[in-house]
Design a protein around this nucleic acid. Structure first.
Lengths: 354, 354
DNA sequence: CTGAAAGCGCTAACAA
DNA sequence: TTGTTAGCGCTTTCAG
């Protein structure tokens, strides 16, 4: 008679999950066989596998990811570092990531930096959890951060930002091209005096969008845009609009580095009165968040290809998994201008009245 | 001479983290001493602890949460099940949770149900990760779900929703009281013909807000509110407004079960023209999301006490940690009406013009 | 293809 | 207060 296990009974559903040993016993095989049955690509006979899987199913067994992760150093989680939750663009990104990863049986571990907590302190924590990859969407990127990323034990991807010369992969909308195409659009619409509302200084997104925008204007022989500071927030956009209106000669077009600021600009203009949108001033944003399509705003904007960006990010994360650690790559994806009522079509087409 | 460790060198920073054994060796103590030094409330001499901590610091040692979790069944993570990311209320909640937990050295594991993935399938997965608690913010709650929750191995808290008779803790704004106080506010303002825009049928939030609202109207001798369906989305609110306007006698006040729908209602009214806000129709929402304060909307709404709600949730989660598994409790927190331009003050006070 | 045994890094009895 | 001894549940050599 086998010696009685002094463990709890194996089927107190919920309370105590079945273990590999339980399944092995039930299927009449060894625990290694159970392990193999649950690891794709391991050599195991069809019959054995089937038997194990059936027993596992009966017991409601699922491999414990913690125990597995302890050995394989892959816990089935991907870390996402996200700070700017107030910008609606990011929750959407987060959700899309979560769903996509869920489909691969993986999970999102969310890291939000505290008030004055240095971002780079979060990474080691994430590594400690055996995350299989890290996605960083935070705007503030220090050089310490980059060096931590550079020799991380798992792939790290900067999402929606780039860092020149850093040894880290990045996936980004082509911000410079976006800025340039917005400039062209404005020029084509006869705008002569453009303004740019910047986000946070030092954020690559704001920087490149501005660079492309200025370049596009210059190509058309126009001067550099007027400039205001918006800090990537609605209120910042509101204030920026006020500032720009206070100018002796206000702009006839305003491009804000992201949508949330552009909405603030619209509200600022509206509140101030005087200038009408789009008759007197055009307003353009960047991102295409949900609120931009709301009738009250009807904001022309440059849509980021979120889905493709996320797909690319996952590809980079997976890649390292299935091969040698490839060298860091930067992927630039094209976005596209979405024309709405905050600008007039260059051909003077009739728009749906509001 | 001690036998040579055949492990990798203990200080290949980043690549191979130091283990408790490394620290023990460096500090000249046993691994258990190291463990004790890192577990609050364990009996260990001051001097030993200090020595361990110093050695740990020098090696950059942090206990591996996976290994620890394997034994203690507490991996330092809290699962959050969240579906409605399109409602800006939830990202805010998520961020606040993440920060609060981070301050306790814990982390958020995010679970977002896929398209037609049953929510109850996510819970066992979360348990498998040794999460120390589960917060559920999803609107759709099946009874299977509730039974899984009821005998979960860790505390489960329903956030911003309740389920009658279920054996699960819940933290919620007092929705019924909120609905009632909105009704009173409208009545006091001379509104006679109110409408309610419902969210998803079956969602407790919508249900209780409506119940309180109807009760409040009844107390004032007014009939039950007109009713439209908004599905908790902006577009739903937009459509609801259109429907209500098409009535022979349109309402003179509209209460939408959440802000995002209320904003849709405002835009719907604006687009349709005819009725002015607040002169002809008052509009009130529920939540107080950021966009409600934007000048374009300036929505009167009922503010949920997010911070207190989260604090309460954490308290319930912690409670179970430090004691016997207490019986499930439901916490109802009071919210408060935020008056803005989409309604007129009952006393006819002058408002900031828009 | 399969099982036995070793051990991932840590905590939890148990003695000392 | 300490160290020793078992394991948590799993994957992984290594023989067979």
């Amino acid at each position: 008679m086998p010696k009685e296990s002094k463990r709890r009974s194996p089927l107190r559903s919920g309370q105590n999950r079945a273990t590999a040993a339980d399944v092995a016993r039930a299927a009449g095989v060894s625990v290694s066989a159970v392990s193999r049955a649950f690891t794709p690509g391991k050599s195991i006979a069809q019959g054995t596998k089937a038997r194990v899987l059936r027993a596992a199913d009966a017991l409601g067994y699922q491999p414990n990811p913690l125990a597995r992760g302890l050995i394989t150093r892959r816990s089935g989680m991907v870390a996402i570092l996200m700070a700017e939750v107030s910008n609606p663009f990011y929750p959407t990104v987060l959700e899309t990531f979560a769903r996509a990863l869920s489909a691969q049986g993986k999970h999102v571990m969310l890291f939000t930096p505290g008030e004055d907590e240095p971002l780079e302190a979060l990474l080691p924590r994430a590594f400690g959890y055996g995350v299989e990859g890290v996605v960083i969407t935070s705007a503030k990127l220090t050089s310490e951060m980059m060096s931590v990323c550079a020799n991380a034990p798992v792939p790290v991807v900067l999402f929606n930002r780039t860092v020149e010369g850093a040894d880290v992969s990045a996936v980004c909308c082509d911000n410079e091209a976006g800025g340039r195409s917005i400039a062209r659009f404005l020029v084509q619409g006869g705008r002569r005096r453009a303004a740019f509302v910047a986000g946070l200084e030092g954020a690559s997104t704001s920087l490149y969008r501005e660079r492309g925008f200025a370049a596009g204007l210059a190509e058309a022989g126009l001067p550099a845009p007027l400039r205001a500071q918006g800090g990537f927030t609605f209120d910042g956009g509101l204030r920026a609009a006020t500032e720009l209106l206070a100018l002796k000669t206000p702009p006839d077009a305003i491009f804000a580095a992201n949508d949330i600021m552009a909405l603030g600009v619209l509200d600022g203009l509206r509140r101030a009165g005087g200038l009408r949108v789009p008759e007197d001033v055009w307003v353009v944003g960047f991102d295409d968040i949900a609120a931009s399509a709301w009738p009250s705003f009807d904001l022309t904007t440059f849509r980021q290809p979120i889905n493709r960006m996320i797909a690319e990010t996952l590809r980079i994360l997976d890649l390292a998994e299935s091969g040698a650690p490839s060298s860091p790559s930067t992927v630039l994806l094209p976005g596209r201008l979405i024309e709405r009522g905050s600008t007039e079509s260059a051909v003077g087409a009739v728009r749906e009245p509001f």
